[in-house]
């Protein structure tokens, strides 16, 4: 891999990391909002939506972090 390609991949991973954090934070807030729901269906909707957001955000962060680690070691 050339230095340019490594830098481009690093940039993409850093962007994904930031996006993942943002999406995960909103997943946590939606999950927290469960305590304000009244019916079982509302309760489950918030829980499923929150968990999906956390999974997407967490997944992006995990993938980005492992890519950053790999690319940094390659760069050195």
């Amino acid at each position: 891999m050339e230095t340019n390609e490594i830098n481009a991949a690093l940039k993409a991973a850093q962007i994904n990391n930031a996006l993942g954090f943002f999406i995960m934070a909103f997943g946590v807030i939606v999950l927290f909002a469960m305590i304000f729901t009244e019916t079982f269906v509302e309760h489950m909707t918030d829980m499923v939506a929150g968990l999906i957001l956390i999974s997407i955000g967490g997944g992006m962060m995990w993938k980005a972090k492992s890519t950053i680690k790999k690319l940094k070691s390659k760069k050195e």
Binding site: V30, M34, F36, T37, E38, T39, E42
Partner: peptide, 9 residues
Amino acid sequence: ILPPGLVGL
């Protein structure tokens, strides 16, 4: 229709 939390979202 939407529960609290998702309305705001």
